[in-house]
C-alpha cells in the first residue's frame, strides 16, 4: 500500500520484519492505526505481539518493511521525538526505587523537556489531569511499589497520557489482573480513544475481552498477520484453529450480545 493511501493514519506499518539473534520474530507484519480507534493485537504466545509493538515504536530494530508515523518514516525521528508522539504502557517490574505516583506520572513529561529544564507548572497540570482522568489522583503521594497491579497499570496509563501522545501502545495491559480490573482498564482505554484524538494498540491475550473492547483485531501467527478486521471477521473457527491449534467455536452471547468463544478441545 503506498503511503498516501493512508495519509490519515497515525501509524502505518507494512511488511515489517524483525530478526534478532538469528530468530525471525516478525516475518512481514502490517498494522494501521487511525485516531479514535482501538486496535487489538491477538495471537498465541510467541506470535510477535510484543515484538511488533517494540518495532513500531523504534525500541527494536527493523530488519525489513516500512513504518511511518504521522506520514513520516520512523527512521527520520529521534527517540525523543518518537516519545512525543507515541506513549507506551510497559509491563513494569522494576520498583526498587521508592518513587511516588506523582513523580512517576511526571516522568511522562520528559520527552518534552530539555536537559536543563525542570517541569513547569503547566507540566504538573498535565500530569494532574492525567491522574484525574485515570482515577489515580488519590494515589498521588503513594509509593509506586505499594500499589496493587490494577492501580499500577492505571498509573502507567496516566504516565503515558502525560506524554500527550497521539498513539498509545499497551503491551498486555490486563496481564495479572482480576476480571474486574481487566474490564476497568480496557474501559478506560476505550474511553480515552473515544474522545477522538488518540489511537491505541493493545496486545491482549483474552480473545473475548479483545473482541469487546477493540474496533479491529489483528491476529498474529508466527510473526505474520493471519487475519485483520472486525472481531467477528477475525475470530472464526478456522483461524482460531490455525493460530492456536484448538477447536473453538465463536458465538454471540444471547444475554449480553458479546462475542464469546466456546473452546471444544485443545
Amino acid at each position: 500500500m503506498p503511503p498516501e493511501a493512508d495519509a490519515g493514519a497515525l501509524l502505518h506499518a507494512e511488511g515489517v520484519r524483525c530478526r534478532i539473534d538469528g530468530a525471525d520474530l516478525l516475518r512481514g507484519a502490517s498494522l494501521t492505526v487511525r485516531a479514535g480507534e482501538l486496535v487489538g493485537l491477538i495471537g498465541p504466545n510467541g506470535a510477535g505481539k510484543s515484538t511488533l509493538l517494540r518495532v513500531v515504536s523504534g525500541l527494536w530494530p527493523l530488519s525489513g518493511g516500512t513504518v511511518t508515523l504521522l506520514g513520516r518514516p520512523l527512521s527520520e525521528y529521534a527517540p525523543r521525538q518518537v516519545a512525543q508522539i507515541v506513549a507506551q504502557v510497559p509491563q513494569i517490574t522494576a520498583l526498587d526505587f521508592p518513587f511516588t505516583v506523582r513523580q512517576v506520572v511526571l516522568m511522562g513529561r520528559s520527552p518534552h523537556l530539555g536537559r536543563f529544564t525542570l517541569e513547569s507548572a503547566r507540566d504538573r497540570q498535565i500530569a494532574e489531569r492525567a491522574m484525574r482522568r485515570t482515577g489515580t489522583l488519590d494515589l498521588a503521594e503513594r509509593l509506586i511499589g505499594t500499589l496493587s497491579g490494577g492501580e499500577r497499570q492505571r498509573v502507567l496509563i496516566a504516565r503515558a497520557l502525560t506524554q500527550e501522545p497521539r498513539l498509545l501502545l499497551l503491551d498486555e495491559p490486563t496481564a495479572n489482573l482480576d476480571l474486574r480490573h481487566q474490564l476497568s482498564i480496557l474501559a478506560l482505554v476505550r474511553a480515552l480513544v473515544d474522545e477522538g484524538d488518540l489511537g491505541a494498540v493493545a496486545a491482549v491475550h483474552d480473545l473475548e475481552l479483545a473482541a469487546r473492547a477493540c474496533d479491529r483485531l489483528v491476529l498474529l501467527h508466527e510473526g505474520a498477520v493471519l487475519a485483520a478486521g472486525s472481531p467477528a471477521e477475525v475470530l472464526t473457527s478456522d483461524r482460531l484453529r490455525a493460530a492456536y491449534g484448538v477447536d473453538a467455536c465463536p458465538f454471540t452471547d444471547p444475554v449480553t450480545g458479546h462475542l464469546r468463544i466456546a473452546v471444544a478441545s485443545g
Partner: peptide
C-alpha cells in the same frame, strides 16, 4: 523504572 520504560520515554 526499567530499561524499556526509559527507552519508551
Amino acid at each position: 523504572l526499567g530499561e524499556e520504560s526509559a527507552q519508551a520515554l
